[in-house]
Design a protein around this nucleic acid. Structure first.
Ligand SMILES: NC(=O)c1ccc[n+]([C@@H]2O[C@H](COP(=O)([O-])OP(=O)(O)OC[C@H]3O[C@@H](n4cnc5c(N)ncnc54)[C@H](O)[C@@H]3O)[C@@H](O)[C@H]2O)c1
Ligand SMILES: NC(=O)c1ccc[n+]([C@@H]2O[C@H](COP(=O)([O-])OP(=O)(O)OC[C@H]3O[C@@H](n4cnc5c(N)ncnc54)[C@H](O)[C@@H]3O)[C@@H](O)[C@H]2O)c1
Lengths: 207, 207
DNA sequence: CATAGCTTGTGAAGAATTTCACAAGCCTCC
DNA sequence: GGAGGCTTGTGAAATTCTTCACAAGCTATG
């Protein structure tokens, strides 16, 4: 398939959020214009984004809300649930492990790992924190496809290398570290400092 | 000034991280190529990003690490510290309030707010959780420029409206909600579901 | 069944961003 | 002090992303 831009995928995810909202409100169809308004974009953008994957609407009518939800889930790969491991059960790791939103969007936390013996054994939202040393064995057994890194910055690259060696191909990283991963492994880093600095820049260069 | 792309600002923030690292390692100068390698970009991109703001290097030599750090801090508006309020002292709000990285990057948490009386009074990293009703008065008194929203999705827009009315012009939102703000207010949303879904898409469409 | 009124899907145009490529400048060393 | 070896800064080219604009198609209605 032709390469799909990151920005397109993010918008598709956003559209899915709004469609779920629309469905809860009992709407049966929605136009690209309405979807655009919810997502702060344009109707042409919505249609173009969808057009990369096929044709989902009815001219004159718009899109069937539940059909489009199903199509987007299919496109994004959300038809099955995704098992996820969290490495690092500190403040942010614990918050994520207990985050309900994970589950409601099709992601199951199947393991939480920490080196700190004081943390091991603790249960976070039903999932027990297990010793870090167990990571490889559990990945082999539970076959999670995604790892979330919540370890200190200096531990992030070593942990990434371990989960990649164990077969993980997608990583969400919260540590403030620039990670390198082999071809074929997707790493996304959420960097709090950068988010705040972008805001500081915006304030500094305000009109 | 000419409009600066969001992607450029994010990279500048990233460069700053690496430069701080380089400085700790005792390096005095750095070339655009080295900086690019750390940040997963190209030397031309680094030079172009910087060129929007001036000329900071020496041909044949590269950039003075501490000079460039100072320049980037100036560009990003990090010469003074930024007071920040956090609204919502739940799991993610508490984690952020206790996050050391905030302080080391020039952001000071000056207030944490929650509606839950059980949470009020608790101290997070030295900052007491205060009643939500205090928000407007505290913003008027402490003059924070940035608000971080860690409230449930349905509370996010009302809280945003309140902080904007109180004078806040930059917001970092963790709630899964599409927020609308008046012209002149910058809102950045970190959406966990989207981050994971982008990973699911990458895995699904893997080669 | 023809018409009116919408809305999609999509090439083409336009805008923005990234990459290229090279002149200009600086440092070192002989 | 001139030559050689690097590296910057930047127009121009290339690429990527977004917006435009309109033919095509669906529904409803009389
Ligand atoms: N707290 C926040 O709000 C926040 C926000 C953004 C980013 N971060 C980043 O997230 C990471 C974690 O932050 P935190 O506040 O939760 O810190 P924390 O100290 O509370 O937690 C880190 C945890 O990781 C564990 N750990 C260390 N090395 C490990 C390893 N090799 N394998 C498994 N576990 C290991 C520690 O035992 C600890 O429990 C840091 O890199 C931090 O910079 C935190
Ligand atoms: N926990 C996570 O890892 C995580 C990750 C990403 C996003 N989020 C989002 O962040 C938000 C908070 O999540 P959480 O897990 O911390 O939930 P939480 O229930 O632990 O915390 C929410 C807190 O907000 C407070 N609150 C509610 N309404 C308020 C208001 N109007 N003013 C001030 N405080 C108010 C509640 O009393 C509670 O303490 C949610 O929108 C959630 O979807 C959470």
């Amino acid at each position: 398939m032709k390469h799909i831009a990151d920005s397109t995928v993010r918008r598709l995810s956003l559209y899915l959020r709004f469609l779920e909202e629309f469905e809860r409100h009992g709407h049966a169809t929605i136009s690209s214009g309405e979807l655009a308004r919810s997502g702060g974009t344009t109707s042409a953008q919505v249609r173009k984004d969808l057009s990369f994957f096929g044709s989902f609407g009815k001219r004159g009518l718009g899109y069937g809300v539940s059909d489009l939800i199903a199509s987007l889930r299919h496109i994004l790969g959300l038809e099955a649930r995704w098992p996820v491991v969290i490495v690092g059960a500190g403040k942010i790791g614990a918050a994520l492990a207990q985050y309900r939103g994970f589950g409601t969007h099709g992601f199951d936390v199947v393991g939480v790992y920490d080196t700190d013996p004081a943390r091991v054994g603790e249960a976070l939202n039903g999932v027990p924190v297990r010793p870090d040393a167990q990571l490889e064995a559990d990945i082999a057994a539970l076959r999670p496809r995604i790892a979330v890194l919540c370890v200190p910055g200096e531990a992030a690259q070593p942990v990434l290398d371990r989960v990649v060696a164990a077969g993980i191909r997608a990583v969400l990283n919260f540590a403030p570290a620039a990670l390198t991963a082999p071809e074929g492994v997707t790493v996304r880093t959420v960097n709090m400092a950068t988010e705040l600095e972008v805001l500081a820049f915006a304030l500094t260069n305000a009109p």
